[in-house]
Design a protein around this nucleic acid. Structure first.
Length: 352
DNA sequence: TCTGGGGTCCTAGGACCC
DNA sequence: TCTGGGGTCCTAGGACCC
């Protein structure tokens, strides 16, 4: 595939930016959206911090207790998913309706648009500027856009200049754009893989490019081949609105670790019926039930069972959840989290 | 300093079938 | 007495993403 132009749009500090709009009096002050810090004793993590808060070293996924230590006077606000979802819907509609381009929303605040048919980077740039303007006009929120010859480059490009940025990488500049970047920028390279690559002397994408395909395949399996391609700026994943749901689940972390049987059983039952509610809302049948248990020391286990046929029964879901959890409960060890997930979903409309 | 909640995808071993 | 190969499904765990 040649001559592609892909645009990646990423809202800036989305949750925190929305909260700023709802609390104009907090303008310019550090805002942390996430778990309740409970005076430094809270569990949970930072969901999003605004830029003033980031200057204190606060960032997404950081333990909320740590964020509290870094900046106790920040404004700590709870996550209001429903509200952000509504704002997201309006923004995504605007982007989707910006033209008849293949569009793919990848999360509450991120989307790709395939604008290959514009056939020129300057036209794509113009569209990007228009999108940024329209979103700001309508929602008073800023976003960052990356444009590149495929999803990978567009995504990395948008990550380069934030907030309110626009980065365009021409096909001919792709390699020189990638080479100096740390391998952590690549899709699917997290802390563990970064560590492993670093141990091989691979720090930058230029380093990665020197590694033979076979060596990468040996060390990283299927992902090795993807790494090889990514290092060369290649990515042929299409932009398409799709996404069938594969699983539905809920989990909860207790305010304090517990081995209280009554509480554990009650929590599992509640999770099971909440999951069932979502199942019904989406009119799905399920076939596999998985229970997730996390002990106080963070050791995490799953136990699952696949039924002989699909069902929508809530009684079965509850019974299976309890049955799967039982061996863990017998241990009497304290737990910090329990969860229930269903998979092997089947849309109900297909009657059998 | 402990580490959320919603997900997806990959791997590896064992069971089972032909 | 020793011992195939391929394919699919299930289960458990782990890495990663937002």
């Amino acid at each position: 595939m040649s001559g592609r132009i892909v645009l990646h749009l990423d809202m800036d500090a989305f949750f925190a930016a929305i909260e700023e709009l709802l609390h104009p009096e907090l303008a310019g002050e550090p805002i942390v959206v996430g778990a309740d810090p409970k005076g430094g004793r809270g569990r949970g993590v930072v969901s999003t911090a605004n830029y003033p808060a980031r200057r204190y070293g606060i960032h997404s996924a950081q333990p909320i207790s740590e964020a509290y230590r870094l900046c106790p006077h920040a404004h700590f606000l709870p996550v209001r998913h429903g509200f952000y979802g509504k704002v997201s819907e309006r923004i995504m509609r605007l982007v989707r309706d910006a033209g008849n381009y293949p569009f793919e929303q990848v999360s509450i605040d991120e989307a790709y648009v395939e604008v290959s048919k514009l056939a020129s980077l300057s036209k794509a740039e113009k569209l990007a500027r228009e999108l940024k303007e329209k979103i700001f006009e309508q929602e008073k929120l800023t976003c960052t856009i990356g444009i590149g010859p495929n999803r990978l480059i567009a995504k990395i490009a948008s990550g380069r200049q934030k907030p309110d940025g626009l980065t365009i990488v021409a096909p001919s500049d792709t390699q020189k754009f990638l080479d100096p970047l740390p391998v952590r920028e690549l899709i699917g390279v997290g802390p563990k893989t970064e560590e492993r690559l670093n141990a091989l002397g691979i720090k930058t994408i230029a380093d990665l490019r020197k590694f033979p395909k076979t060596a990468l395949a040996d060390g990283f399996g299927k992902f090795g081949a993807t790494l090889f391609e990514q290092a060369r700026g290649r990515d042929d994943r299409p932009v398409e609105e799709k996404h069938e749901v594969k699983s539905i689940g809920q989990q909860t972390t207790f305010a304090e670790d517990t081995n209280n049987r009554g509480l554990l059983l009650k929590t599992l039952a509640t999770l099971a019926s909440d999951v069932h509610g979502q199942l019904q809302a989406g009119t799905f049948l399920y076939r596999t039930v998985t229970v997730i248990i996390r002990f106080a020391n963070f050791e995490t286990h799953t136990s699952s069972h696949t039924l002989r046929k699909h069902t929508e029964s809530i009684a079965t879901l509850k019974a299976q959840s309890l049955k799967l959890a039982l061996p863990f409960l017998q241990s009497r060890r304290k737990m910090r989290l329990v969860g229930v997930r269903v998979s092997h979903l089947l849309p109900k409309t297909i009657k059998r």
